[in-house]
Amino acid sequence: MTVFPDPDHARDLYREMVRIRRFEERCVELYSASRIRGFLHLYIGEEAVAVGAMQSLSADDAVVATYREHGHALARGVPAASILAEMFGKLEGCSRGRGGSMHLFDRSRRFFGGNAIVAGGLPIAVGLALADKLRGEPRVTACFFGEGAVAEGEFHESMNLAALWELPVLFCCENNGYAMGTALGRSESETELTVKAAGYRMPAWSVDGMDVLATESATARAAEGVRAGGGPHFLEFRTYRFRAHSMYDPELYREKSEVEAWKLRDPIAAWRETLVAHDVMDEAAVAATDAEIAQEIDAAVAFADAGTLEPTEDLLRFVHTEPSS
């Protein structure tokens, strides 16, 4: 049961989703201009998941994400400027230019990456939650991963450990239908993902990942269950990636008509229509939000541009912890 949020919060949700969308659209331009290199995995189409889910997390909670994590980092509060500087390979980047798009970290915000091994972050989330449980800290660790991860052994090991030890983990499975180019039905014998969670006696729900109110309310309920000592919870967000897997993907594995059909369910357009219909925003407010975000992203690009390249003399730093840090 979802209740329409207060107008300020409703506008915040909209703004956060648009921020992620515009940020990544700018990333595409910068990639085409060779300012960003390496792999670039876009979250466009999936914004309602990170934005909705992040609303239930406090600063003390932890977030573990994947290589498609720009949206999660932004929604967690990692500054756009430091993310863009990271993608430019600059010292001012959130990982000092050591990580790139797939390895965004921000310890001060308990944002633990940025993991480019599918399912590799799940055991880490279990460990973060184990530490909280051993210390008696009432925190939640939210672990985001794609549906491709459920084929990995680490998914099953982590689900079992978290359930067995009743750890405060919120497993957030972003089911966008394709593990790179492999459709779920071509890789899984059981495509109902909540059934897998049931195998670990874990409360699990399937959520419309294109509806920010649905993602927010489902996460709120699951996080409340975790905080109340109910052990790990599993959420499947049914969503869709509008863009290619990465910048090198000719998309031979899916029909254009399928992409177009999902685009009709664009979470941003849908939420904007809802807000306009509820008189929470008008066209002028929408335009003002766009302008404000464009300004933030322009400033982020300028910051990244002005950033410094780490001297190659520092190549070996941080292989091990430095005595001062």
């Binding site: 989330a125 279990v126 090991e157 450990l161």
Partner: peptide
């Protein structure tokens, strides 16, 4: 049993859990 913690046969899972706990300043 909290500090002498038997694990299932999940080497990747419990080594990764050790990494996560270490990130949170435990000493596994």
């Amino acid at each position: 049993p909290d500090r002498i913690r038997d694990t299932p046969l999940s080497e990747s899972g419990f080594v990764g859990a050790g990494i996560g706990a270490a990130l949170a300043d435990m000493r596994p």
